[in-house]
Write a protein that binds this DNA or RNA. Structure first.
Lengths: 96, 96, 96, 96
DNA sequence: ACCGTGGTTAGCTTTC
DNA sequence: GAAAGCTAACCACGGT
């Protein structure tokens, strides 16, 4: 059911409908595969993160607390970024 | 697990990065940094994915359709995996 | 801490701030109570489900397997729905 | 909808393997259907809850705040229950 | 009794 | 500005 022809069929049903087995189908397939590849990587890193939390836990740390910690640090960073942006805005406003 | 040192560790992680009398503070810091590094990578890949969708869009494909396509393909895969697991479960249930 | 006046205060802090003890407070209270009532029903059904699993178990069935079974059936249904949606999407993409 | 034979087949693969199309299969099917029926009801109530929140929103209330409110009230209730249990414990301890 | 897994829910981001 | 999809946290159950 998820045969290659299926992917091409889909390409045909989109904008390039007259392009049976042609360049649009190939292009779409490439795009789909790139996305799936990237999502795999992303999921893999997600697993790594989980592992680190697991390691933290088995070292005796409280996972929930660590999560809070990280959230706080991220918020701090965002806050800093916003302040920087504001500064840039001001600098632009007065012409550098 | 909720030893006195644990409480101290938590205190150290909030206000002061330096670790009063123990190695735990250093260890925690390492863990936090590893997690933050990984989350950065993950976010970066998320950006890449977005870019690919943008590329698809400017090539004339319908992004929403591609997303659905990918979701469907993922569901197929999950379903296959779950069915395999189910089979194992059955085999275990009847004693191999 | 959770005195009645507190609830009204919260209502006052939303859009209808000038409405101390007035109609907005009453309205909010009604909404909260409706939600709580519905959540009670929901929890009650959750208990029922648990009971059925318990019954299944004491009849000799393997609970984990039944759960997987149900999950799989749900996935089938979702997949079917998504495929229908995808079809609609395609039809829209090629102009009906 | 999966065919009936599918469900029976599954029943046959569990503990009562020698019971092809027999009483265990029927029993399992009944259990699965009861659970699915209940989960439908549960989902339906979930939708109702969402609707109420939507209604609250369009009345000008802040949904996030209402959620907090309800969480707080639930916590209060749990706390009260725990205190009641404790009280009962004491009363039992001193013989009513 | 504890740990790990799975399910549920809430918050966030993005799209229309 | 509303609606939807995605992600992440929380919670509860089942297994060991």
């Amino acid at each position: 059911m998820a045969s290659p022809s299926r992917v091409e069929t889909i390409a045909n049903d989109t904008k390039e409908a007259s392009d049976v087995g042609g360049v649009a189908g190939v292009r779409l397939k490439q795009l789909v595969e790139r996305i799936e590849r990237l999502e795999e990587e992303k999921a893999s890193i997600g697993t790594d993160i989980k592992d680190v939390y697991g390691e933290a836990k088995s070292t005796g740390f409280d996972v929930k607390t660590i999560r809070k910690l990280i959230r706080l640090r991220k918020m701090d960073e965002q806050k800093r970024n916003e302040e920087d942006e504001l500064l840039d805005l001001y600098r632009a406003a007065i012409g550098l």
